[in-house]
Write a protein that binds this DNA or RNA. Structure first.
Lengths: 218, 218
DNA sequence: TAAATTTGTTAGATTAATCTAACTTTATAG
DNA sequence: CTATAAAGTTAGATTAATCTAACAAATTTA
């Protein structure tokens, strides 16, 4: 049995690994807002349970078993977010906090039913892929908007770092997934972009924002 | 802040109080399957938090504050059960276990949304009343089927003790809330009843079953 | 009403998850 | 290549929720 606390460590490890590969104790500590000694001792425990590879003074890695468990938690999180948006009418900026709690519910059927009612979605409301029933994730290679060049026409496919404030900002600019965006110009001094989309002929987006918008070329 | 463990004690107290008024430590201990010394110490803690009245060797009572908190937890439980049945297609025998977990989720909006999507229901799938936003419950006086007499025609309005097995049994007999039931005869030796309802002209129900079926006279 | 049973409490141990303080190892910067 | 900084560990304390063993109070029964 995996405790609630353990689930949170696995999830954090999974998320950080996907960004930066191996994860050290310090990063995990910051991510979870839990002091390093606590993280160290939890790593020993998860190592005993064969959920992570851990050796003193070295970065931590999820085992296959750990990846699967983490994937299944993230599956529950993302299915929940999708359900909250699609079936309950929440905004995409509201769902993360609720899903953080719902993801720990132990009931295969509950999440199966969500999946079914949603029509087996592949991505959550932020464009992140939903792991399958084995916890396996299918990575789609997106590009950062910030790496595109003037004249490119792209489709907004996902957003990174789903803080509620960032999502509210996107709402105010009517930036939604699936939207076609044309890059009109790039300011060389601050890398901000002037783009057009929907009914907005000219919007300026800071580099920070453009780094968090994932797009596909069309 | 009320912890998950504390919430479970409050809920148990609320439920037991409605059946038997004052509740002693032993009953609470059995209900929660937690040993008596643990219950005693938790009563002291809840008493400090002004959620219960507690004095050594005396029965425990919820304070007004405790009643409100307990009512709100039960509200979340029952809204969840209703949502699972009405919006997600679960059977009434499957929802208790899931609701036991969902009831602890901290999100006003989540349960507001359920309430709204359900059209502000007054009762849960077992006919139990749903407390209002202040945790207040409106009691409707039902009669036990076991207390009715031959010839009575009644409407099945609620069921007590919602164990999954009991509910599955009701499913096999096609006994649903709202059903009109006619009492054809009562066996004096075991108090079992022969009744007719729906497409079933003659069904025998044991006294144990009849005590758990709550009805209104029509 | 005295004995037996049930109910309740106290004391102290245990477990999981956290912390702080002190120390060690590894990495970085002159 | 040493010295300093950053990262990591160990040891020991803390808190919440649980337990068992032993004792005490209340209730039931003979």
């Amino acid at each position: 049995m995996i405790s609630l606390a353990e689930e949170n460590y696995l999830k954090a490890l999974f998320n950080l690994s996907n960004e930066i590969g191996e994860v050290n104790v310090n990063e995990l500590s910051k991510e979870l807002k839990i002091k390093m000694p606590t993280v160290t001792s939890m790593m020993k425990k998860l190592s005993e349970k064969k959920l992570v590879y851990y050796e003193s003074y070295k970065p931590v890695k999820l085992t296959e078993k750990g990846k699967k468990e983490a994937g299944l938690i993230i599956r529950k999180h993302r299915l929940t977010e999708m359900f909250l948006v699609e079936k309950m009418g929440f905004g995409w900026e509201e769902v993360h906090e609720i899903a953080e709690q719902v993801e720990h519910i132990q009931s295969f059927n509950f999440f199966e039913k969500m999946d079914e009612l949603l029509g087996f979605p592949q991505v959550d409301p932020h464009g992140s892929p939903i792991p399958d029933k084995n916890g396996k994730i299918t990575w789609v290679e997106y590009n950062k908007l910030s790496e595109c060049k003037t004249g490119d026409i792209v489709k907004l496919s996902a957003v990174i770092h789903t803080s509620s404030d960032f999502l509210k900002f996107l709402n105010t600019r009517e930036l939604k997934l699936g939207l076609k965006i044309k890059i009109k110009s790039i300011e060389s001094f601050d890398k901000s972009m002037v783009v057009s989309y929907g009914k907005r002929p000219s919007e300026s987006l800071s580099h920070t924002v453009c780094e968090r918008l994932l797009v596909e070329h069309v």
